[in-house]
């Protein structure tokens, strides 16, 4: 059976094509201001990669905050929580806790051995608890987002960050720069702050091993280190953490 999962996130659209449990095509596109166009583009690239045409796909399931924008392709939809859980258990059968930090939302999901959702908590509507926080901080610090995490590796000491709001944290970062605080230490403070917020959410569902971290933020070594320190364990990270939601949707489509 050939199925597709489409994950319309706030910032990117991910498409993944699955044939009998094997990934045969995938694509990621920036959502920009037209999620529908991005979805179409991403879908076509994934099809081309798999050497298929649209009619070859038997079922399509969409997920993500903008999933309604994919309605022109996907007749069915599922929640991000269900998709994340399914994708994570497929990659790591030992997973019991899934952490997904997206651009506009952070989630912690507790799952059973079958990938069924037991409990979940979401940080939503406030940018301080999501990837948007790091994006804003990278601008304030004038360090590209991709380099922000690595910068923490050179940090000599932990400096506190008091602001809990992205807008106020931007000013705090500027003040820290003026006070000649090394950028490495500020970067560490930024990652510690977001990790703190994510961990408190994980504790609300009860921490259970193994813990899997998915979403684009999982590629950020600074965040991963802060998270491991706070959770006192090592989170498991898939090779392509940003595709786990789309994978889960494609798996659900195959059922």
């Amino acid at each position: 059976m050939i199925t597709a999962g489409i994950d319309c996130g706030a910032k990117t659209v991910k498409v993944l094509i699955l044939k009998d449990g094997r990934v045969i095509g995938k694509s990621l596109a920036l959502a920009g201001f037209d999620t529908k166009a991005a979805t179409e583009q991403s879908f076509n690239i994934a099809l081309r990669g798999a050497g298929l045409s649209k009619n070859d796909i038997q079922r399509i399931v969409a997920t993500g905050a903008g999933r309604l924008e994919a309605a022109f392709l996907a007749k069915e939809e599922t929640t991000e929580v269900a998709a994340d859980a399914r994708g994570a258990i497929k990659l790591f059968p030992s997973a019991r806790t899934v952490i997904d930090v997206g651009a506009e939302e952070g989630r912690a999901i507790k799952i059973d051995r079958n990938g069924k959702v037991v409990d979940f908590a979401v940080n939503e509507k406030c940018a301080a608890g999501a990837g948007a926080f790091m994006e804003a901080m990278s601008r304030a610090l004038e360090v590209p987002l991709e380099e922000l995490g690595e910068l923490t590796l050179k940090s000599q000491r932990a400096v506190p960050m008091n602001a809990q709001c992205v807008v106020f944290a931007e000013s705090e970062v500027v003040t820290l720069i003026h006070a000649k605080t090394p950028k490495e230490d500020i970067s560490r403070a930024i990652h510690d702050a977001i990790s703190d917020r994510i961990v408190s959410m994980v504790r609300r569902i009860g921490l259970e091993r193994d813990v899997v971290l998915i979403g684009g933020v999982a590629k950020n070594i600074g965040f991963v280190n802060s998270l491991n320190r706070d959770l006192e364990l090592e989170v498991k990270i898939p090779e392509e953490p940003e595709f786990v939601g789309a994978l889960g949707a494609a798996i659900l489509a195959a059922e």
Binding site: A127, A132, V166, V167
Partner: peptide, 17 residues
């Protein structure tokens, strides 16, 4: 719609577009 200043800014940019 968005209360958060960061998200409201994104929303406003969308409205302008």
């Amino acid at each position: 719609n968005s209360t958060c200043v960061v998200f409201a800014k994104t929303e406003a940019t969308g409205l302008l577009r």
